[in-house]
Measured scan of single mutants.
Amino acid sequence: QKPVSAYALFFRDTQAAIKGQNPNATFGEVSKIVASMWDSLGEEQKQVYKRKTEAAKKEYLKALAAYR
């Protein structure tokens, strides 16, 4: 399975908490809140997710090379 983006990892980590705080929110509303949070996130915090994405990408490429 291809690795997901840094934003997708952040979304996955954040979505449940947002939904818990806003139980009646639609998926679209939750998405807007998470997107706003991502935009206001500091670069250092974004780097945490970007590093996770890079590590997953390297593992994916290694597994793909081994498969071929």
Rank of each mutant, 00 (worst) to 15 (best):
F11R: 08
A35F: 04
A6Y: 04
E29S: 04
A35Y: 07
V4I: 14
A65N: 14
Q15S: 02
E43K: 07
I33G: 04
G20R: 14
K32I: 04
I33T: 12
V30C: 05
P23H: 02
A55Y: 06
Q1A: 03
I33W: 03
Q45R: 10
T14S: 14
Y60N: 06
K2Y: 12
A8H: 14
L9V: 06
S40R: 12
V48G: 15
A66W: 09
T26C: 06
T53V: 14
A6H: 02
M37I: 04
A35W: 08
G42E: 12
L61Q: 14
Q21M: 07
V4H: 07
A63N: 14
A17S: 09
E43I: 04
I18V: 12
I18S: 01
T14G: 01
Y60M: 12
A66D: 15
F11H: 05
F27T: 14
L64D: 15
I18R: 01
A6G: 08
N22A: 03
A63M: 07
A25N: 02
D39R: 12
E59Q: 07
K2G: 04
M37L: 07
F27R: 13
G28L: 08
R51V: 10
R68L: 09
A25S: 05
G28K: 11
W38N: 01
F11I: 02
Q15T: 09
A16E: 15
A56R: 07
Q15R: 05
W38I: 00
D39Q: 12
V34D: 02
L64Q: 15
K57G: 09
E44H: 06
L9S: 13
K19C: 08
E44D: 13
A63F: 02
N22K: 04
A65E: 14
A63H: 15
E44V: 07
I18Q: 01
A65V: 11
L41T: 05
K32W: 03
Q45V: 06
L41W: 00
K19P: 00
A65Y: 03
L61N: 10
E29H: 03
A66I: 05
K46T: 04
G28E: 15
Q1E: 04
L61P: 13
Q1V: 06
S40P: 00
S40E: 12
A66M: 09
K46Q: 10
A17P: 03
A65D: 13
Q1H: 14
K46R: 10
Q47Y: 13
Q21T: 12
P3M: 05
V4P: 12
L9A: 11
E29Y: 04
T53N: 09
T53Y: 15
S40K: 14
K58V: 13
K32Q: 05
Q47S: 10
I33M: 14
A8M: 15
L64H: 15
A65G: 13
G42M: 02
T14Y: 14
K58S: 11
E54S: 07
Q45A: 08
E59R: 08
S5G: 10
V34W: 00
L9K: 04
Q1G: 14
P3L: 08
I33C: 05
K62Y: 04
K58I: 07
K46E: 00
A16K: 12
G20C: 09
E29G: 00
K57I: 03
K58A: 12
E54V: 06
A8V: 09
G20Y: 04
K52L: 03
K57S: 11
I18W: 01
S40V: 08
F10E: 02
M37W: 00
A35G: 09
Q21L: 07
R68F: 05
Y60P: 11
E29N: 02
E43G: 04
V30K: 01
G28M: 07
N24I: 00
L64S: 14
I18F: 01
V34R: 00
S31K: 14
A35L: 05
Y7C: 02
A65S: 13
L61T: 14
A6V: 02
A65L: 11
S36G: 12
V34S: 02
T26M: 00
K32M: 07
V34H: 00
S40W: 01
N24Q: 04
P23G: 02
P23L: 01
M37A: 10
Y67Q: 15
T26V: 01
K62I: 02
P23T: 00
Y7L: 02
W38H: 01
F27W: 09
F10V: 00
K32S: 09
K57Y: 05
K57M: 13
K2L: 04
Y60I: 02
S36P: 02
A56T: 11
E43N: 04
A66Y: 09
S5I: 00
L41G: 03
K58P: 09
W38M: 04
S36N: 11
Y7P: 03
K62G: 08
F10C: 00
K57N: 13
E43D: 08
K19S: 09
F10Q: 01
V4Q: 10
Y60Q: 14
K52E: 07
Y67S: 15
S31W: 01
V4F: 08
A8N: 08
W38P: 00
F27P: 15
A17K: 15
E59L: 04
A55R: 10
Y67F: 09
S5A: 05
E59P: 10
E44G: 08
L64C: 15
A17M: 08
I33P: 00
S36D: 11
P23F: 00
S36E: 13
E43F: 06
F27G: 10
A56F: 02
Y67L: 11
A56I: 08
P23W: 00
E29C: 02
A25F: 10
A65Q: 12
L41I: 07
T14C: 01
E59W: 02
S31I: 02
N24Y: 02
P3N: 08
E29R: 02
Q21V: 05
R12S: 09
Y60C: 03
D39L: 06
N22S: 03
K2E: 03
Q45W: 02
V34E: 00
A65H: 10
T26R: 06
A63R: 14
R68V: 04
N24M: 10
F27Y: 13
A65K: 13
F10R: 01
F27V: 12
I18C: 01
F11D: 01
M37Q: 09
W38G: 01
V30D: 00
T53S: 14
T26W: 01
E44Y: 00
A25V: 10
A17N: 07
T14I: 05
P3K: 11
K58R: 11
L41E: 00
G28F: 10
A35T: 10
G20W: 03
Q45L: 03
A6P: 13
K62E: 12
K62V: 03
Q47T: 04
A55L: 11
D13P: 00
Q47P: 01
Y67C: 15
F27I: 10
Q1Y: 14
T26K: 03
D39C: 11
Y67D: 15
T14E: 05
V30Q: 05
A56S: 08
I18G: 00
R12Q: 11
F10N: 00
S31V: 05
A66S: 13
S5M: 04
E43T: 11
A35P: 01
F27D: 14
V48I: 09
T26I: 00
L64W: 06
